[in-house]
């Protein structure tokens, strides 16, 4: 689960964000809606342990994220948080499957080829596993980035605008996959987006202003 308390982030004296407290239990979902410029990416990065907030902290389980320093935070993030980005980015020089292996390696997890094969199968990417990521279609890339977010069985899955570039059909498919697989690994799912279509899929949502 994830919980935040009193997060404030100041980029400068004139630009600062104050975020409402967020809580999302294991196997539950939360939609964070907000228009451009309200600090969505900032919040996401704070939640992911990428950007240390000026004040406040993020708890994953009982661990205060920003109580961790340096490479411990990196390791913790790799192991416990799966990130899905708006534009899927991969390591270009290796194959789709190897991108999953890399996620295991970077998080300090043992190589589990069986798990990656299962995930690729579940996300209908089995036939693309030796493809380079830049050879894949947008939909395939988005599914692969979901597979990567899931590979280490994290406690939290964070998705940043996962659907904004997709049509309605693909949008629904991606959200269904995210929900289904988060549940499978017993993770909390937090989606940050401006995409109002997603309101229909989530019972819990928060709007940023």
């Amino acid at each position: 689960m994830i919980k935040t308390s009193n997060i404030i982030h100041k980029f400068s004296d004139s630009v600062s964000f104050e975020f409402p407290d967020i809580i999302c239990e294991q196997e539950k979902t939360l939609l964070v809606l907000g228009q451009s410029g309200v600090g969505k990416t900032t919040l996401l990065h704070i939640l992911a342990g990428i950007l240390k907030p000026t004040s406040g902290d993020v708890f994953i389980g009982n661990t205060p994220l920003y109580g961790l320093k340096g490479h411990k935070l990196d390791k913790f993030r790799g192991k416990n948080i799966g990130l899905v980005f708006q534009k899927p980015h991969f390591v270009q020089s290796v194959t789709a499957e190897e991108n999953l292996f890399l996620a295991q390696k970077m998080a300090g997890q043992p190589l589990d080829k069986k798990l990656s094969a299962e995930l690729l199968d579940a996300l209908n990417l089995n036939h693309r596993k030796t493809a380079k990521t830049y050879e894949m279609s947008q939909g395939e890339q988005q599914r692969l980035s979901i597979a990567r977010a899931l590979i280490n069985k994290p406690r939290l899955i964070l998705a940043d605008e996962p659907t904004s570039a997709l049509d309605d059909k693909n949008c629904e498919e991606v959200i269904k996959l995210l929900e289904q697989h988060s549940e499978n690994v017993k993770a909390a799912l937090v989606v940050v987006t401006h995409d109002n279509r997603l309101k229909d899929f989530f019972s819990n949502n928060i709007e940023l202003h």
Binding site: G78, F90, L102, A103, A107
Partner: peptide, 18 residues
Amino acid sequence: QRKYELSLLRVLGGNSKS
């Protein structure tokens, strides 16, 4: 060209030393 890739490796759990 790879600055996003390198950030990605960090997000995935790799540290600065890696």
